[in-house]
Design a protein around this nucleic acid. Sequence first.
DNA 1: TGGAGCATGTAATTAGTTACATGATTGG
DNA 2: CCAATCATGTAACTAATTACATGCTCCA
Lengths: 183, 183
Amino acid sequence: MSLPHAILTALLEKPSSGLELTRRFDKSIGYFWSATHQQIYRELAKLEEGGLIRVLPAAQPTRGQKKEYEVLPAGRAELVSWVAKTDDPKPLRDPLAVRIRAAGVVGVQGLAAELRRHLALHQEQLAQYLAFEERDYPAERAADVPAEDRLRHLLLRGGIDSERFWIGWITEVLAEVEGMPEG
Amino acid sequence: MSLPHAILTALLEKPSSGLELTRRFDKSIGYFWSATHQQIYRELAKLEEGGLIRVLPAAQPTRGQKKEYEVLPAGRAELVSWVAKTDDPKPLRDPLAVRIRAAGVVGVQGLAAELRRHLALHQEQLAQYLAFEERDYPAERAADVPAEDRLRHLLLRGGIDSERFWIGWITEVLAEVEGMPEG
DNA sequence: TGGAGCATGTAATTAGTTACATGATTGG
DNA sequence: CCAATCATGTAACTAATTACATGCTCCA
């Protein structure tokens, strides 16, 4: 149940419309949580019904018109209490690994190409994250950076490290697979 | 759509009943794909209906009795063709990261404890994977190990590296969070 | 005035989770 | 014979994905 809380967090940083949220999820929040606009609209409706957010009173628009939401005190309280909750880490669930394992049993035809494709995608993603880091967190001095920014930087670091993990691992697998007969 | 293919792979290695598959998913295949027995039974029924697997003719049992499945030629063919398919890497989706980000906005009360708990869980998991590695792949010489085993070892290495990534990252975040006021 | 793009939404489907129900086997 | 355990399964629900529908705004 992270989506509603991700939305509350984003709205606290800045009141937004559904589509604006979708765009922000494609960027910074998207390092570690993705959502489509359909999911977001559905969730906004639920949060509003639950009294955790409201439409900015400025305009009560109709369909097709922009609709900005802000967080109500109950929404903030809910987020505070959620931060302190516990939740076990979800076990890994990686389709590429299933494919590799299957290849071990029925043969590796076609697998190398897919591994190279994933490798390129992860390298691209890594380059983008590194560019974000350079742009947004240039050589910071620990003491004078606000807590919020330091945590955001650490999340980006997490994205970077995770891409490096994938690149390292896929490279190893690819080296092995390239030495195997395709037939 | 990885679950049916994970099941086909497991059944090719060894014909099994639903519960046996569940146990095997808790072990080796579970490094990278988890499934509950309910999911597995549902999927077995679908695969049987689709003509990809069949109940071992030895016994056609009733409810409560063990029921072993094996893969039919059509099932193997399906798996071969699936191995060569492409599928984009799914974007990361990590609830703990959402929680950290939320904490940046509403305060870090309670977060350090949760980070420590996750750290301990990942360390435990890493220790277990390392023990598996020592037990199952002791100092292998590349040349004389069959391809299937080498790929299985690489999957375990992936699990190990991924746990190390989590441990490293959470440790960094924890150090930062411990320096922040809880109020 | 009509098409491109912005914006909000519905509907249908699939995948995964949680809770529960039931039968069979075995050991004390 | 009965409790524990093994084993298979149903039902209800939640989350996520995919495809589609509709309305508004602006500008060529």
